[in-house]
């Protein structure tokens, strides 16, 4: 099932895992000197999985966009990006709704917009906060799944030196949000 837009309905209403309605101000999780942590609700997220048996060259050419080849890398910008996070799986991340191909032949496209919550971590202190939780060292064009706080997997996207996006299972958004809020109140290591 693919959704191209986030449906609005008189019958049912959407609400983000941190309690934000579509169009409302995203939840500010933490704000202090050199650090800003904010929810990014209602991103469009989809996984594009390539079948093991596919003819890779043909399959990659069949899509209406260029998928990044670098392992754990992404292309695009903060508003719209494509990331390769498994040898045969890519993720689409878009602030505005974007047309998705249907699953066909070599590709299985799965809408994950409801499944993942997104948090943006920005500021000069952002790398130090992440260093407390992860051991991975990501370059600016990096996107990877890694272990956060020794307990939960997250998808981590480095948008700039001091700008990160974290994607986490929607049922754990509360946990991540609390953890980052507490971390923002702790003094960072000197230098």
């Amino acid at each position: 099932m693919n959704q191209n837009t986030l449906p609005a309905s008189p019958g049912l209403r959407a609400i983000s895992s941190l309690g934000t309605a579509p169009g409302a101000t995203p939840q500010l999780i933490a704000q202090s000197a050199g650090l800003r942590v904010v929810e990014e609700p209602f991103l469009q997220l989809a996984s594009l999985r390539l079948s093991r048996k596919a003819d890779r060259a043909a399959a990659l050419g069949a899509l209406p966009f260029d998928l990044p080849a670098t392992p754990n890398g992404w292309t695009g910008d903060a508003a719209s990006s494509l990331a390769r996070f498994e040898p045969n799986a890519w993720m689409l991340i878009s602030v505005a709704p974007r047309a998705l191909p249907e699953s066909a032949d070599a590709w299985v496209v799965t809408d994950l917009s409801s499944r993942l919550a997104s948090v943006r971590l920005q500021g000069a202190r952002a790398p130090a906060v992440l260093a407390a939780a992860t051991s991975v060292s990501l370059p600016v064009s990096g996107f990877t799944r890694t272990l956060f706080a020794e307990t939960v997997p997250v998808l981590l996207q480095r948008l700039a030196d001091d700008d990160y996006r974290l994607l986490i299972d929607v049922s754990l958004a509360g946990y991540l949000s609390s953890w980052l809020a507490d971390a923002s109140r702790l003094t960072a290591p000197a230098k």
Binding site: P71, N72, P87, S135, T144, T146, L147
Partner: peptide, 11 residues
């Protein structure tokens, strides 16, 4: 082989 060097805790 895909991600490069990582800590054992991820495996």
């Amino acid at each position: 082989p895909f991600c490069g060097p990582r800590d054992e805790a991820e495996f």
